[in-house]
Design a protein around this nucleic acid. Structure first.
Lengths: 177, 177
DNA sequence: TGAAGCATGTAATTTGTTACATGATTGG
DNA sequence: CCAATCATGTAACAAATTACATGCTTCA
């Protein structure tokens, strides 16, 4: 009935479940660092809440699975309504602008020392770049195209960050005090 | 007494107040879009709470100012303790990695159409780039260096986004279905 | 003269963060 | 056999989002 306005997190849950076929919030939590985690953060507690909410809204079916001991898994999968909602969202334009949250840049802006910050940030960006390139290297070229394209964006931006901080690492303060 | 652990938002409040000399949360709200707003979001309601919290912690002084009618302004400025906290934070390394939240990339990842997304994102990034370049053009070259350096980062990244989405705009789906 | 917008802030609701709980399983 | 970690999830608290409140100004 109600559209129960869905958020980006909702579509991450729907999208990953479509991809996996089915899964528990815990499975999603596992999948996220390898997938959307690089350009969207989702706290795991949110996954449990969101899956339950989508279930109540009729977007997901739930099945409780006993687990030889521990807690029972709650396994979700898309309903036709969920599938349609996801397809509709895919077709709509994004609506919101990208947001960046960079503690290093913030410090730089508020007076931090450029060279010290560069020395701190560079290795982290180099690691991230290497990680992305490794993922791309392993990718066989089959499977959906979206992740591959998004990975390209990640690589391009890591390279840009490396160029940027490298310049600052050599910085001589040519300008101002 | 207690360090009352400060967050990034705390330092934005402290940093902007140091820059402005003094100001109300409303003043900060005005200042943000032109300053740190481009790489850190701060909801305005948070500014009121945070300023009050910092005041209670001894980092800010407060003065209540009558305003010919409307509500009285609460004007804050740094205490020596606040100044010291800010200086200390500047010297420490960032600790946390940058985070990106990009609805467009998310859609792309989850199967959105590359060309449609590119058509949507390109004008927005072009506008943003033009805005940054205008700010840089107006900057006389005096004043603190941090904002100028951070602006450079913004410009470099907008250019990268424009290259990225431009490639996708011409996309022919050479790979996969 | 009335609608729109500015200046200023509070409150309600939803999300995000962090810490905790609990029974396997595995490595040393 | 004990400690660590995995698999699975809940709960408490802090922060973000959104909506609302209130009395100017300003402009058509």
């Amino acid at each position: 009935m109600q559209a129960a306005n869905l958020t980006a997190t909702s579509y991450i849950v729907l999208g990953l479940l479509e991809w996996l076929g089915e899964g528990s919030p815990y499975d999603l939590k596992q999948a996220i660092p390898r997938t959307v985690g690089n350009f969207w953060t989702v706290p795991h507690s949110q996954l449990y809440r969101e899956a339950e909410r989508l279930h109540r809204g009729g977007f997901l079916d739930r099945r409780d699975e006993a687990t030889a001991g521990g807690r029972p898994r709650k396994v979700y999968c898309l309903t036709p309504k969920g599938t349609r909602a996801l397809a509709r969202w895919r077709r709509e334009p994004p609506a919101e602008p990208p947001q960046l949250r960079d503690p290093g840049l913030l410090k730089l802006f508020l007076g931090g020392d450029p060279r010290a910050l560069a020395a701190d940030r560079l290795p982290a960006h180099r690691r991230k770049l290497a990680e992305y390139e490794e993922i791309r290297r392993l990718d066989a070229g089959s499977g959906p195209r979206g992740p591959w394209l998004a990975l390209d964006a990640g690589i391009a931006h890591e390279r840009e960050w490396i160029r940027y901080w490298s310049r600052l690492a050599r910085d001589r303060q040519e300008r101002r005090g």
